[in-house]
Design a protein around this nucleic acid. Structure first.
Lengths: 211, 211
DNA sequence: AACTCAATATGAACAACGTTCATATTGGCT
DNA sequence: AGCCAATATGAACGTTGTTCATATTGAGTT
């Protein structure tokens, strides 16, 4: 086993196809709807035969899951950066929710893929499904623990984390599908929405709005 | 224009195809995944040529939207029944959330269709998209107004209603996709989840769980 | 009671899709 | 230099949504 061995394991004929498939699929999602992301479309874009994909993924679902997993990783980075700022927990929560919504707004089709049944429901890859929700739950639990994440308290914090994620996900979906009326200045509106959600979580819905 | 005219407008050769298409599609959703609900599959089930559908719907999306609209109506009935009970607003909210989650749990594939991008995003039918979210928002606003629904306050209550719906929708999705660990007795678990969500909304997340 | 015509159903066709398989090509290792 | 596993190809199959020309139906008019 010399050094070149690991390189040969990733050996290929026309560039590292697996990575190129994932990245081009991700690029396509930036400009086209999720429906347009077909196996043949990706193959065409990369300049390879459709059947070549099956040397690296057993399925289209597996390719999509890999793309989604990449999105999960980006989300985890956002979260880690958010609570990397040592401030009061309220500020952290607001930034957490804000970053989450901004990510969804900036990558609508990737976000839809990440939480589509195709990826989440079938759990083709072990990292998918688990990673998708646990990443956010962990960060929330971390915040709730005021900086000290205690796995033992996980069961206690679980429903709270679920509520936080549900609120964010539902709002993100409403946003992406145009249910929320976003007048002008989308970034500003996203932040405003995030703060409303944080208010509800912090103080309860009832006290947030004047009776 | 005599009486039989309206009957002749709904005239058909092999039964009222439009209604039969919608109902069979809805029946199929009770036993099969959303992917399995293809245009040809519905046509096959009804016993009609695929192209016959285009005499009643211009699209597959339009047929799916009609099915979803039927789901919306069921949801509205649930909501109206919930706040038809004149009790304290907290009880109404708990029942509202509980019924919502129970509906999603009882009709997972129909629920997924109702809030799929295919139906919500494209808004093929006017009743779809609008009706889907406004129905729930209205009932929530009604509850918030303590029985007297005031359209003028709609703008004020809007973000609150959005938060409520987001919470329910996100939790429903987590539930359907197996993110929430449902041990045994699903009905009981759904109610427990609904109460947690209501707690969060009523008191704020922070005070709900012991620090 | 026969006729008419719009409404409705049919069947064949097309392009695009995911997937499979036999075949061809590549490039690192002995 | 040559072998062999890894990788890429192209053709094929079944399925999908959609279109179009054609056929059938049945209610309203004569």
């Amino acid at each position: 086993m010399n050094v070149s061995k690991s390189a040969s394991q990733q050996g290929y004929h026309k560039g590292n196809l697996r990575d190129r498939l994932i990245s081009t699929a991700e690029t396509l999602l930036q400009h086209e709807e999720l429906d347009a992301l077909s196996l043949r479309r990706v193959a065409r874009e990369v300049g390879v035969a459709p059947s070549a994909i099956y040397n690296h993924f057993s399925n289209l679902d597996e390719l999509l899951a890999a793309v989604a997993a990449d999105g999960y990783r980006q989300l985890v980075v956002l979260e880690q950066t958010a609570y990397g700022n040592i401030e009061d927990s309220e500020t952290v929560l607001r930034q957490l929710i804000g970053d989450y919504l901004q990510f969804a707004a900036a990558n609508p089709n990737l976000y839809r893929l990440m939480f589509s049944r195709r990826v989440v429901g079938y759990r083709a890859l072990p990292e998918v499904g688990e990673a998708g929700d646990t990443s956010f739950k962990l960060s929330v639990e971390w915040w709730y623990g005021e900086g000290s994440y205690d796995p033992a308290k996980s069961a206690i914090h679980y429903p709270y984390a679920l509520a936080v994620w549900s609120l964010c996900h539902g709002a993100a979906m409403s946003m992406l599908d145009g249910m929320v009326t976003m007048s002008e200045a989308p970034d500003q509106n996203v932040d405003a929405l995030a703060n409303v959600l944080a208010d509800v979580l912090l103080q309860g819905a009832r006290s947030v709005f004047s009776k």
